Amino acid sequence: NQESVVAAQLIPINTALTLVMMTTRVVSPTGIPAEDIPRLISMQVNQVVPMGTTLMPDMVKGYA
């Protein structure tokens, strides 16, 4: 089963992602794949992401 990127903390809107903000977990439905974490660093979220929420492609500016 593929791991997806999950918020390790509350991420406010327009925050640039850092490694410490993200963790990985096997979730359903699947979100952004864990191997894309290096690509996500410094990208901004376009909404508030509560802790434990799976990051979906449409939540990250410039990802999709």
Results as ranks from 00 to 15, higher is better:
residue 45 V to W: 02
residue 59 M to G: 01
residue 56 M to G: 13
residue 18 T to G: 05
residue 9 Q to K: 09
residue 24 T to P: 12
residue 20 V to L: 06
residue 39 R to Q: 09
residue 22 M to W: 02
residue 7 A to K: 00
residue 51 M to V: 05
residue 23 T to M: 15
residue 45 V to I: 04
residue 48 V to C: 15
residue 2 Q to M: 12
residue 49 V to M: 03
residue 6 V to E: 09
residue 25 R to C: 07
residue 34 A to P: 10
residue 16 A to E: 12
residue 22 M to D: 01
residue 56 M to R: 12
residue 12 P to C: 13
residue 37 I to M: 10
residue 60 V to L: 11
residue 35 E to S: 13
residue 36 D to S: 14
residue 40 L to N: 00
residue 22 M to C: 06
residue 21 M to Q: 04
residue 29 P to F: 06
residue 47 Q to S: 08
residue 44 Q to T: 11
residue 33 P to I: 10
residue 44 Q to G: 06
residue 47 Q to I: 09
residue 24 T to K: 10
residue 3 E to W: 04
residue 47 Q to T: 10
residue 12 P to M: 09
residue 51 M to P: 07
residue 9 Q to A: 06
residue 9 Q to R: 06
residue 12 P to D: 06
residue 57 P to M: 13
residue 32 I to P: 01
residue 49 V to F: 02
residue 63 Y to T: 06
residue 16 A to C: 05
residue 14 N to W: 07
residue 47 Q to M: 11
residue 31 G to R: 03
residue 56 M to I: 14
residue 51 M to I: 10
residue 45 V to S: 10
residue 53 T to Q: 08
residue 10 L to H: 15
residue 12 P to H: 11
residue 19 L to F: 11
residue 21 M to I: 03
residue 8 A to Q: 06
residue 13 I to W: 09
residue 20 V to T: 10
residue 54 T to Q: 03
residue 28 S to T: 14
residue 32 I to D: 01
residue 56 M to N: 08
residue 10 L to C: 15
residue 7 A to C: 03
residue 42 S to Y: 08
residue 28 S to P: 02
residue 62 G to C: 15
residue 59 M to T: 04
residue 37 I to A: 08
residue 10 L to S: 11
residue 56 M to H: 06
residue 6 V to W: 02
residue 36 D to T: 07
residue 23 T to Q: 14
residue 45 V to Y: 00
residue 39 R to E: 05
residue 56 M to Q: 13
residue 55 L to H: 01
residue 63 Y to I: 06
residue 45 V to K: 00
residue 36 D to E: 08
residue 47 Q to K: 15
residue 50 P to G: 11
residue 36 D to C: 14
residue 1 N to S: 15
residue 48 V to F: 09
residue 35 E to M: 12
residue 25 R to L: 10
residue 33 P to E: 12
residue 6 V to P: 01
residue 36 D to W: 10
residue 61 K to A: 07
residue 59 M to E: 01
residue 31 G to I: 03
residue 22 M to I: 13
residue 32 I to V: 11
residue 64 A to Q: 13
residue 16 A to V: 10
residue 1 N to H: 08
residue 15 T to N: 06
residue 25 R to S: 15
residue 45 V to F: 01
residue 50 P to Q: 14
residue 59 M to R: 02
residue 25 R to H: 11
residue 43 M to L: 13
residue 21 M to V: 06
residue 2 Q to W: 14
residue 20 V to A: 08
residue 54 T to Y: 02
residue 45 V to L: 08
residue 56 M to A: 13
residue 56 M to F: 09
residue 4 S to V: 02
residue 38 P to T: 06
residue 24 T to S: 07
residue 46 N to W: 03
residue 51 M to H: 13
residue 2 Q to H: 05
residue 20 V to W: 05
residue 26 V to G: 07
residue 46 N to K: 14
residue 39 R to C: 12
residue 60 V to P: 00
residue 28 S to N: 09
residue 37 I to Y: 08
residue 42 S to E: 10
residue 60 V to D: 02
residue 62 G to T: 05
residue 48 V to I: 13
residue 41 I to S: 05
residue 9 Q to S: 07
residue 58 D to P: 11
residue 27 V to L: 08
residue 2 Q to T: 14
residue 61 K to P: 04
residue 54 T to S: 07
residue 19 L to C: 14
residue 54 T to L: 08
residue 20 V to Y: 06
residue 41 I to P: 03
residue 43 M to Q: 08
residue 30 T to M: 13
residue 29 P to W: 03
residue 15 T to F: 05
residue 27 V to K: 06
residue 15 T to Y: 03
residue 45 V to G: 00
residue 46 N to S: 13
residue 22 M to T: 03
residue 11 I to S: 00
residue 23 T to K: 13
residue 37 I to T: 06
residue 31 G to M: 03
residue 41 I to V: 11
residue 42 S to C: 06
residue 9 Q to W: 05
residue 56 M to P: 01
residue 61 K to M: 10
residue 64 A to G: 14
residue 2 Q to V: 13
residue 31 G to L: 02
residue 28 S to A: 12
residue 34 A to Q: 10
residue 55 L to Y: 01
residue 13 I to K: 06
residue 11 I to W: 01
residue 63 Y to M: 12
residue 26 V to D: 15
residue 31 G to E: 02
residue 39 R to Y: 11
residue 8 A to G: 06
residue 19 L to W: 08
residue 27 V to S: 11
residue 41 I to K: 06
residue 16 A to H: 05
residue 42 S to F: 05
residue 22 M to R: 00
residue 23 T to C: 05
residue 59 M to K: 02
residue 29 P to L: 05
residue 37 I to S: 06
residue 20 V to M: 05
residue 51 M to A: 07
residue 38 P to S: 07
residue 30 T to D: 11
residue 12 P to R: 11
residue 56 M to W: 03
residue 34 A to C: 08
residue 38 P to Q: 06
residue 46 N to L: 12
residue 18 T to I: 05
residue 17 L to W: 01
residue 27 V to N: 06
residue 13 I to R: 09
residue 55 L to M: 13
residue 40 L to Y: 02
residue 61 K to C: 15
residue 17 L to G: 00
residue 57 P to D: 09
residue 5 V to K: 00
residue 54 T to N: 02
residue 45 V to E: 00
residue 43 M to A: 14
residue 38 P to H: 07
residue 23 T to P: 01
residue 52 G to L: 09
residue 59 M to W: 09
residue 32 I to W: 02
residue 30 T to P: 13
residue 50 P to S: 11
residue 16 A to L: 04
residue 20 V to S: 10
residue 59 M to F: 10
residue 36 D to R: 12
residue 63 Y to A: 06
residue 39 R to N: 08
residue 3 E to P: 06
residue 54 T to F: 02
residue 54 T to D: 01
residue 48 V to D: 14
residue 14 N to F: 10
residue 9 Q to E: 14
residue 42 S to P: 02
residue 31 G to C: 04
residue 29 P to E: 14
residue 40 L to G: 00
residue 19 L to E: 11
residue 60 V to W: 02
residue 53 T to N: 11
residue 61 K to Y: 09
residue 5 V to H: 01
residue 58 D to T: 15
residue 5 V to P: 01
residue 3 E to M: 06
residue 38 P to V: 09
residue 29 P to M: 07
